[in-house]
């Protein structure tokens, strides 16, 4: 389903620059994500794609460029004289409410049950009515197929189950955009499918998504747009069936070449 060019921009990244010490990991990355769009970011390990994603909800600071989510600046604002100032903690937190994040290592709160994990954000951050949140949380758990595990603790769940709960937890905040940071990379191969199925369903429902992944088939079949990153910059981007069938650069060609057609290049 093509995204109309007039759809409002949800995430806008402009000239993003980020270093770890002397090592520059992002070197002027720019792209927009429109409402309802599914953008899949591909690239070899160390290409900066996860760091870029973590900048979008300011889990990483950055030295240059700007990011906005729903028009609100992320992390920094410029004062009157054009200098950038870090936003205060309250503003940073409010921005993060609009951005759902799913981590490679799930990061469910280990001291809380599945249901409590999903309810925690809406109750303790958004101060929404507990019984209403509970109802919504159970619906979300139903949607990801985890309703019958609502009262279990995360340690008792498989990786795939934990990740589906983590998706429900992020959705409970009613975010404007969902970020997936290699959501299936830590999973046993037989558990990847159940998580991708949930992600696919979200995409069909029109959720705005930025997905960093090594799953080529997901990129090919679900993405509205594929971005290929290497060396901290965007090398190629476009509609998946065009750019993945016909890569314009040697780097993207060789990256796709190392991919096994069934499963996608997986990091060890």
């Amino acid at each position: 389903m093509p995204i109309p060019a007039g759809a409002p921009i949800v995430v806008s990244v402009n000239g993003l620059v980020k270093s770890f010490g002397p090592h520059r990991v992002l070197n002027g990355v720019s792209f927009d994500v429109r409402r309802g769009e599914v953008v899949v970011v591909l690239g070899p390990s160390g290409s900066g794609k996860s760091t870029m994603l973590r900048c979008v909800n300011f889990l990483e600071t950055f030295e240059g460029g700007t990011i906005t989510v729903d028009g609100a600046p992320v992390g920094y604002r410029s004062d009157g004289q054009g200098r950038r100032r870090m936003l205060d903690e309250k503003m940073v937190a409010e921005n993060r409410e609009r951005v759902g994040m799913v981590f490679q290592s799930f990061n469910l709160f280990s001291h809380r049950t599945v249901l409590q994990n999903v309810m925690m954000g809406p109750v303790s951050v958004q101060h929404r009515d507990k019984s209403e949140v509970r109802k919504q949380a159970l619906e979300l758990l139903e949607k990801v197929g985890m309703a019958e595990k609502a009262d279990q603790y995360p340690a008792r769940l498989s990786g795939g189950q934990q990740q589906r709960v983590a998706i429900a937890r992020a959705l409970a905040m009613r975010p404007a955009v969902m970020l997936f940071d290699e959501a299936t990379s830590a999973l046993d191969p037989e558990l990847v499918g159940e998580v991708l199925r949930v992600m696919r369903e979200l995409a069909t429902e029109g959720m705005t998504m930025v997905v960093v992944t090594h799953e080529m088939s997901f990129a090919r079949e679900v993405a509205d747009r594929v971005i290929f990153m290497d060396g901290g910059a965007i090398v190629e981007q476009g509609v998946p069936h065009e750019i993945m069938a016909n890569p314009q650069t040697e780097r993207f060609r060789s990256f796709l070449g190392t991919d096994r057609p069934d499963r996608g290049a997986r990091i060890a």
Partner: peptide, 11 residues
């Protein structure tokens, strides 16, 4: 990761 998850929920 627990802290990152808490932050990402806007805590």
């Amino acid at each position: 990761g627990q802290v990152a998850a808490a932050k990402s929920l806007g805590m």
